[in-house]
């Protein structure tokens, strides 16, 4: 048995604790590099399950107290009206986004039809989007990571509320991030400005595709844009759908700064969603399976007048699911998907 002098015992204990944590670090790094295991480490699970009820209670108390104060007597009606208008505004923004996407798709289909009309001898394969239906759940942000390096938030819905890994999280203003960890009653969301984040995106005007990567700072960057592409401050950036997490056409942000570099430009983005002021978010829960129309019998090969206004083989897309923004003092509930209109 090693006899450690009393004066040296704290140093020995320090060495033991530090070495143990270094080995723990090494084990975790080795495991991550070796496999695609997505399981949550047990200590993380315990820590989150211990902290989340306190966070939820604190958030409830703060929102309850502020709700009671702000809704007192003559302010009550203004607050109710404000909540109603915010919810309506959020719905209108989502609907506007869906309509803009439909309009853009109709324009693309018209170009395709025009090309087909001019070149009837060229065989083509047409694919049409039959339709997609999305269900959304409103959730409240109840906390964030406890260190300045990570950019993550915790929401008050988890596995019991049908939240799953890699679900997209948005606000009516723009995208926020994706679900990376799911617990029974909470979920952790990786924000788009975290350095581990990468989003498939494109410029709204030109359609140039790139990747929006978080850097750990407040503003993410757009990567893989060559110097030949003209990019200006203020250019709008939307999701491209390439990552299969965010649907196409959702606002990401606008260009805040552009610098030429080798081999790609350095483009800083000011996000559309206020990532430092998140209170209520929407989680995209499900997407109906897309159905591609077979090419040989595709009506797209038969020219139709553009005035029919219907892309070949496609049903009219349903509007985005209507979601009511949650009241400040009540827990958020999942929204019902809108029924497709014929």
């Amino acid at each position: 048995m090693v006899d450690i002098p009393t004066r040296r015992r704290p140093l020995a204990l320090l060495a033991i604790v530090v070495v143990a944590q270094v080995l723990l670090l090494a084990f975790q790094v080795r495991r991550t590099a070796r496999s695609e295991d997505k399981q949550v480490p047990l200590i993380r699970y315990w820590a989150v399950e211990m902290i989340m009820p306190i966070e939820r209670a604190g958030s409830w108390m703060v929102s309850g107290t502020s709700g009671l104060w702000n809704g007192y007597i003559d302010l009550r009606h203004q607050r109710a009206e404000n909540i109603r208008l915010r919810a309506e505004n959020g719905e209108l923004k989502l609907r506007n986004r869906a309509l803009e996407t439909e309009a853009a798709e109709a324009q693309r289909m018209e170009s395709l039809f025009e090309f087909r009309r001019q070149h009837p001898e060229a065989p083509m394969l047409a694919a049409a989007v039959v339709g997609s239906m999305r269900a959304m759940a409103a959730a409240r942000v109840i906390g964030a990571s406890a260190d300045p390096i990570s950019h993550t938030i915790f929401i008050n819905h988890g596995a019991d509320d049908h939240i799953r890994h890699n679900m997209a999280v948005i606000t009516p203003d723009g995208i926020v991030g994706k679900v990376v960890e799911v617990f029974p009653h909470a979920a952790q969301v990786l924000l788009i400005n975290d350095r581990e984040s990468g989003i498939g995106a494109m410029f709204a005007a030109t359609g140039t595709h790139g990747i929006v990567k978080g850097t750990g700072e407040a503003e993410p960057q757009m990567d893989y844009i060559v110097n030949d592409d003209k990019v200006q401050v203020g250019d709008a950036i939307v999701t491209s759908g390439d990552d299969r997490i965010f649907p196409k056409g959702l606002p990401v942000g606008v260009v805040a700064e552009v610098k030429h570099s080798s081999p790609f430009q350095i483009i800083h983005i000011r996000t559309s969603a206020r990532l430092d002021r998140l209170e209520d978010v929407l989680v995209l829960l499900t997407e109906k399976q897309l159905d591609l129309t077979p090419a040989t019998e595709s009506p797209a090969l038969t020219p139709k007048p553009p005035s029919s206004a219907t892309p070949a083989g496609a049903e009219k897309k349903p509007p985005a699911a209507a979601v009511t923004a949650p009241k400040a003092s009540t827990p958020a509930k999942a929204a019902k998907p809108a029924a497709p209109k014929n």
């Binding site: 723990l24 406890a146 260190d147």
Partner: peptide, 28 residues
């Protein structure tokens, strides 16, 4: 040092991409 280790490990556990032990070592 034990208190620092405990607080640091708890802080790591609540992050996403920090391996457990990063803040633990510093706070130890």
């Amino acid at each position: 040092l034990l208190l620092g280790a405990a607080i640091g490990i708890l802080q790591d556990a609540l992050s996403h991409d920090n391996p457990i032990g990063l803040y633990g070592i510093a706070k130890t």
